[in-house]
């Protein structure tokens, strides 16, 4: 009863195998090309906008065409009104400070809420309320970010009577909580049940075993989730436009309007002056480096723990 190898079928199969493998390689390349192009272009164009003033100065109005910015005197041989001759001055320090302050505040709000929600989702499953919360998280993390902005505007900006950094932080919290809750849930589910049973058999109440055994085992994953949420929050534009509004000056006051890198990018790219468009590429560059850096940090920490 030995089976003979049907050579024809075998050759067909290996041809199909090669074709399909080729398809996957092509599809992957198509997906990667735009990513590489975006990163390369932003690094190339944005990199040239960087200088010391970019990181140390705040907004300063551009110099009118044909005027020497140092002396304030007209420059010979230059046509007045030539926008390409307008020189941008100043930098985006206010945006960097604003982004960091608003996003870190949002992280402080969303970490406790998100982690506790994640614990609830993972450790108390199979209740209708649990299913409801998980559904809400999924809907919220898929909600268009402008909607979050409108909600922030209606709930916080209007009652407060002014745009403020804190309003932006709360709007970002709406976006970050579902991410943190869901990653925390997924990580906690990876903690072996045997560990929970061991603690349970020691007579530990559930809160004690969660705190002393389950959470420490999941710590890296939770930090990863928090960093990714931070990266997402730092890159959001729409919720901030309607809540922190933007500010041309350096401000550390969370109760006042603040600047942020995505908003500066948006404003500078709309500017009629090519020199200010250049600044937009610079802010895009800084944002990109921030997000890439956080993702790299996540990679390195998780890889080290796995080893």
């Amino acid at each position: 009863m030995s089976l003979e190898t049907n050579m024809l079928t075998y050759q067909q199969r290996s041809r199909v195998d090669k074709t399909l493998r080729g398809c996957t390689i092509v599809a992957t390349s198509i997906a990667i090309v735009p990513l590489v192009l975006i990163i390369a272009y932003v690094l190339f164009v944005g990199g040239s906008a960087l200088n010391r003033d970019f990181f140390t100065q705040t907004y300063r109005p551009p110099v009118p065409a044909g005027i020497d910015p140092l002396t304030g005197l007209p420059i010979d041989g230059m046509e007045e009104g030539d926008l390409s001759q307008v020189q941008a001055r100043g930098g985006v320090l206010h945006g960097i400070v604003g982004t960091l302050m608003v996003t870190i505040t949002a992280l402080l709000f969303s970490l406790p809420i998100g982690i506790l929600a994640g614990i609830f989702l993972a450790e108390y499953p199979d209740t209708p309320f649990n299913t409801f919360i998980r559904f809400c998280c999924d809907v919220l993390s898929g909600a268009p970010s402008i909607v979050i902005g409108v909600v922030g505007f209606t709930l916080i900006v209007k009652p407060m009577g002014s745009y403020s950094g804190i309003a932006g932080a709360i709007a970002l919290t709406f976006l970050m909580v579902p991410t943190i809750a869901r990653t925390t849930e997924e990580i906690l589910k990876l903690v072996p049940n045997a560990v929970r049973e061991a603690a349970m058999a020691m007579g530990a109440p559930m809160w004690y075993s969660t705190l002393t055994v389950v959470l420490p085992a999941a710590l890296t994953g939770i930090v990863t989730g928090a960093l990714l949420a931070f990266a997402r929050g730092a890159g959001e534009t729409a919720p901030l436009l309607l809540t922190i509004q933007g500010n041309s000056n350096l401000s550390f006051d969370l109760l006042a309007p603040m600047a942020a890198l995505p908003i500066l990018t948006y404003k500078y790219i709309e500017s009629p002056f090519p020199a200010e468009n250049q600044l937009a590429w610079g802010t895009a560059f800084v944002l990109m480096i921030l997000v890439l850096g956080i993702n790299l940090l996540v990679r390195v920490t998780t890889a080290r723990i796995k080893r």
């Binding site: 072996p192 045997a194 560990v195 049973e197 061991a198 603690a199 349970m200 058999a201 020691m202 007579g203 530990a204 109440p205 055994v213 420490p216 085992a217």
Partner: peptide, 20 residues
Amino acid sequence: PILLRRRIGMVFQRPNPFAK
């Protein structure tokens, strides 16, 4: 059950020490 488990200990099939 929590007070009960303080009187009755348990050893499991697979060793399950904590990551401590």
